[in-house]
Design a protein around this nucleic acid. Structure first.
Lengths: 161, 161
DNA sequence: GGTATAAGGGACTATTTTAGTACCCTTTGG
DNA sequence: CCAAAGGGTACTAAAATAGTCCCTTATACC
């Protein structure tokens, strides 16, 4: 229903737990602990975000991950691009010319306008804005599904290893 | 990758083929023929859009479908709502209070801002805008996949029955 | 140097969602 | 009363997502 995948949601959560370059490193295991996501999943996502340039990594015994730049300089669009590939609201909207011959494509064509609008909206929201809640919620960590209301499926379930 | 489903794309195509109320009816079979979508699929989508109030139907031997109102008064958001349920960019963004207790939800919360922006963008685009191409493409119907370039998967394939 | 720890990369499996089909019922014009 | 058309539901198949595992490479510390 026009939603981002769970992995992208997890990715944002992970990013929110990372230090910025220079101020230390967090290992995949540490991130896994603080997010309560399974470590293989955390590793997978961190790898992808390193490849996309959002995160920097250091290998070896005391290695780990850090944000490549401050949260204000990372946009929602970049996160989605890193984890889901480029936004394209219809299958055709990433391609260009060849479809002009296909009559039914006249419709798909128009979705591109919407696509551009959505991309702009996503580019305007930074990681900092995503993680800083206007209304700071009462912090009651370590409660789980028992307290979640119906219709509110947990955004980061999967089992805490 | 943050895209609408194929069915929604088909739905838009189908809507573009329907007469407005008062100016006649089109049967599911006729729409199937003009869109080259399989009839069961067309029927399924039309039923859903009737339920959502976008389309009106007449039963019986000479029955059929028509748009409930002019294309300018049908928005992209309404089409998506009818065929995919309400837009909710994360699983939690359709729920409200209960998640406040879940610490990890702090992030998901923020996607709602994006969600609102996207919804607004979708509400601002009408079916008329979606189907009227600014640059009228050379109309060469009945050509199929042979002429489509790579990377441009047809938006309404499925077989012509 | 050897070993423990941590990231890198790829392949594989399972699950969930989406797409497509089929069946049977109700309505209605000729 | 029968043929054509919509209404509803349930089922099947295919594809995309999510999650796991295994092995390789790099680095710190003993």
């Amino acid at each position: 229903m026009l939603r981002i995948s769970k992995l992208t949601d997890y990715g944002t959560l992970i990013l929110s737990q990372l230090p910025v370059t220079g101020s230390g490193l967090a290992s995949a295991g540490a991130v896994s602990a603080s997010t309560r996501l399974a470590q293989p999943t955390v590793s997978k996502l961190l790898k992808a975000m390193v490849r996309a340039g959002l995160v920097v990594s250091t290998r070896g015994a005391t290695g780990g991950y850090a944000l490549a730049r401050p949260p204000a300089d990372i946009s929602a669009a970049q996160i989605i691009d890193a984890l889901e590939g480029p936004v394209a609201i219809t299958e055709c909207s990433s391609a260009s010319g060849a479809c002009s011959l296909e009559s039914t494509c006249r419709v798909g064509h128009a979705w591109q306008k919407i696509n551009i609008g959505i991309r702009r909206a996503l580019a305007d929201v930074s990681l900092a804005a995503l993680t800083t809640d206007a209304e700071p919620l009462p912090q009651v960590p370590n409660l789980r599904s028992s307290v979640l209301g119906p219709g509110c499926r947990v955004t980061s379930p999967e089992r805490a290893r």
